[in-house]
């Protein structure tokens, strides 16, 4: 079996790897946006609660949270499908990190523009939607790329809950062919290519929506 054949064999799992990465990244963006928005416009007690949320989910290892959700929750009568378990663990943790990224990016929005929007008669929610979020997201691009990369790199944990991603393919292939070194080398190259694709893709998107004078 040539190295190329190994690569082709493993490529079968790429779809799942990308699916897990995208699903968890989107979960992260939704959770992170929700947390950052609520702590920007919510009452102080809620801010404290959200601060505790981000601290806890940034302190617990992904693997531990994944096992809590996938293997632990059935003890409480709650059975969670593998992909959802990944989203509730890796995705929510990414959300806690992204909430911090978004919080910092929100702080880069000029306070005088927010005041001007208030003086115009826009509601708090309109200001958030029309002024703060569009600017904040642009400031947050580098931080988001970092976090999406991290999600990609933790995505192989999906094999532990039975998702047939690249890692899972590699493990079964390695068990039958006993050529672990080449196989895992190939896996490394595949992840690196996905990583490059991801980073290039996000920057291309950023470039298309770039506005003079507004970069992160």
């Amino acid at each position: 079996m040539s190295f190329l054949q190994i690569l082709l064999q493993l490529a079968g799992g790429v779809g799942y790897t990308i699916m897990v990465t995208v699903a968890c990244s989107l979960t992260g963006v939704v959770v992170g946006l929700g947390v950052a928005m609520l702590s920007r416009i919510g009452p102080p007690w809620l801010r404290g609660l959200l601060g505790a949320f981000t601290f806890i989910f940034r302190a617990v290892p992904v693997l531990v949270l994944l096992f809590i959700v996938f293997f632990g929750l059935p003890n409480a009568g709650l059975r969670v499908p593998p992909l959802v378990a990944m989203m509730l663990s890796l995705g929510v943790i990414a959300g806690a990190y992204l909430a911090e990224v978004f919080r910092g990016a929100f702080d880069s929005v000029d306070a005088s523009e927010v005041l001007a929007a208030e003086a115009m008669g826009l509601s708090r929610f309109q200001i958030l939607r029309l002024i703060e979020i569009p600017q904040m997201l642009r400031f947050a691009v580098p931080g988001m790329i970092n976090e999406f990369t991290t999600v990609l790199k933790y995505s192989p944990f999906a094999y532990t809950v039975g998702i047939p991603d690249v890692m899972k393919e590699a493990m079964s292939l390695s068990a039958t062919t006993l050529r672990g070194v080449e196989i895992y080398l190939a896996v490394g190259i595949i992840y690196f290519l996905i990583y490059k694709l991801l980073v290039t893709g996000v920057w291309a998107l950023e470039k298309r929506t770039r506005i003079p004078g507004l970069t992160g």
Binding site: A119, Q135, G213, L214
Partner: peptide, 14 residues
């Protein structure tokens, strides 16, 4: 009903 022109203009940068 009140138009407000700010000191630093406060144009929305995006």
């Amino acid at each position: 009903r009140i138009g407000f022109v700010f000191q630093n203009f406060a144009l929305y940068r995006h």
